[in-house]
Design a protein around this nucleic acid. Structure first.
Lengths: 345, 345
DNA sequence: CATAGTTCCGTAAACGTTTACGGCAGCCAA
DNA sequence: TTGGCTGCCGTAAACGTTTACGGAACTATG
């Protein structure tokens, strides 16, 4: 005898009553409920997930879809671990479990998602590595599956999304650098499938225009979002006839390689060139410390969870004013990498 | 009408035959099987996971348990993403899905595991962040749930495990440094719950003894496994009356902070002190490049998967000679951080 | 033709839950 | 007393599969 039957037999009541007691339903005497709860913990009873979800068509599982192997976002070390922790904090209150759905680099993300959904794996989904044009969004929207994307997409099905405030970062970076006398300012962007590149470049261009400056196309650097990419950017930058006096780095991990290439050339951030980047645990330990934009990843995770819950019928009323489309502000951490002022002529 | 019933109705045969056809069972005409398979793809039918696992008590899901939020191992996102990719490559051949089971930093890992198991979530498990004394191992072993741990533990239930070859790293590092004239060699270790610390320290001590040297207790540094920890180690090291001439860093990310603290004190790795560490994507971009020990994380993932499969009854015969307990060798990547030779007196 | 064997298929039970439904006490008001 | 109401509980159906079992049709063998 296993499962709920064992519990019922042990208490000498019916399985129906046990189930009602455990799930906080009415129509059960408080004294019996107490006994059931106690016996449940004593016997270590935990409802079988398959049985439960088969009956009520719900799994109490939220899937966070991510791709393994490839470095798409260039978000370093503990990015996801921190976000997860925030998401969990919210879900725990609702007895929801978060699992990471790992799409192999050998499988098409769309196929993978199709499988996950068809199998009825999760009640709702969080999508990361959102593409500029992302078929997954339409797929989920058509099927009325609650989801939220981390990162904006051009594909608009009215879905909720959260994203980092790259406009804010672009604006603040440009304003700051221009105020320090810089006129030739370089920026970096990820590869073309990533939407944030367009957003970021566009806002940089407009911010520069507001100061009467134009964004030189030669000063927009593409690279892989890792240390090696940063290294390459610096090499390319230094090879220019007229190098920029400042640069804004859009990825976290590229700063390390960027610094190294500069160092090899005898160029020092903050003295010979101004550098602004993204926060990462190592940003403070670069020399000189990187001036960068930071946000609380845990808070981002919390917001992500709340927004997702507000899209789920069962929890909608508990999160009436969760943001649907929100850019998440980043704060400026002052380092010394942008201390360099352009000398007046 | 949904699911397998829809398929059966559409083909005008019984659901039993459909199920047998889909699952490759005998007792079904090849012609009908072909028709079923075709109709399945046409209608986009995918078996409901709950129904299936309820009936046959198996989920086709492998769980990789990891802890979010906290930095226990100092291994970042890319570490796991790379390992995952290797694991997936093997599992894909057997139609097994890998999901990451994310234990919140607010929940006890043992409780979490208990829940996961009781719910019947996965067929088998991979445990990471293995503790020196890890109750999860006994728990799983008692219940005959196939699992493998990434990292050794003192808790021995005959379970399979894979681990990095820290003995090999210790031996090679010490031999190398001693051969270059170093006598006062410092090492680092993670906090006390992590088994690798004991393994590593022990082997370092014996390697030194083989050269007639003793390991000075003051030269064993504990720290958090991140950049800040490395920074602190360097500060502590430099504050010693008689600092070591060499150090072996056991974690990946601490090198960055370590370099920085040295740099602030005017000490240069490879010139004033010899440094050996672990590979990370940034190791090559430190100045000077870090001499470090590297391994293919993807291959590690592949081995992990094969070992786990050999512990599962359904796949055991397909992996007859998968290693049960194996240390995974690391290769030395020559940098310049240990170029410093101790001058003869 | 009778029998045995083979090939294929349909039927129904089972997995562990949740929940709609009905029913039995006990109580109160008419 | 009668009727209805409330509080509590048991019964059984349902969720979507898999699979043991039995049986029909056909083939082979005597």
């Amino acid at each position: 005898m296993k499962g709920i039957r064992r519990l019922a037999q042990h208490l000498d009541i019916s399985i129906g009553t046990v189930s009602r007691a455990l799930n906080g339903k009415p129509d059960v005497n408080e004294e019996t409920r107490r006994r059931v709860l106690q016996a449940a913990t004593e016997l270590g009873y935990v409802p079988n997930q398959s049985g439960r979800s088969l009956r009520q068509g719900t799994t109490n599982i939220i899937g966070f879809m991510m791709q393994t192997g490839t470095e798409i976002t260039g978000q370093g070390d503990i990015f996801f671990m921190s976000v997860f922790d925030g998401v969990q904090a919210v879900f725990a209150r609702h007895k929801l479990d978060l699992v990471a759905l790992l799409c192999s680099s050998e499988e098409d993300p769309n196929d993978y998602l199709r499988r996950v959904v068809a199998r009825g794996f999760a009640d709702a989904l969080i999508l990361s590595a959102t593409q500029r044009d992302d078929p997954r969004i339409e797929f989920l929207a058509e099927r009325n599956i609650p989801f939220v994307t981390l990162g904006r997409s051009l594909t608009d099905a009215g879905q909720p999304w959260l994203d980092l405030d790259f406009e804010g970062m672009a604006q603040a970076s440009i304003d700051r650098l221009v105020a320090r006398g810089h006129r030739r300012i370089a920026i970096t962007r990820p590869h073309d499938d990533i939407n944030l590149g367009y957003i970021f470049v566009d806002r940089c261009r407009r911010a520069l225009a507001a100061h009467g400056l134009t964004l030189d196309e030669d000063l927009i650097f593409r690279s892989t979002p890792n240390e090696a990419g940063g290294y390459q950017i610096a090499r390319d930058l230094l090879a220019l006839e007229e190098p920029p006096t400042a640069i804004v780095l859009i990825n976290e991990t590229i700063a390390i390689g960027f610094y190294q290439a500069l160092s090899e050339a005898g160029i020092k951030p903050g003295r010979d060139i101004a550098v602004v980047g993204r926060y990462s645990p190592h940003a403070h330990f670069l020399s000189p410390p990187l001036t960068c934009f930071r946000l609380s990843l845990r808070d981002l995770g919390i917001a992500l969870a709340e927004t997702l819950l507000s899209a789920m019928p069962a929890f909608k009323d508990q999160y009436p004013d969760a943001p649907q489309n929100q850019v998440w502000p980043m704060e400026l951490v002052e380092g010394e990498s942008d201390a360099f002022l352009v000398p007046r002529r």
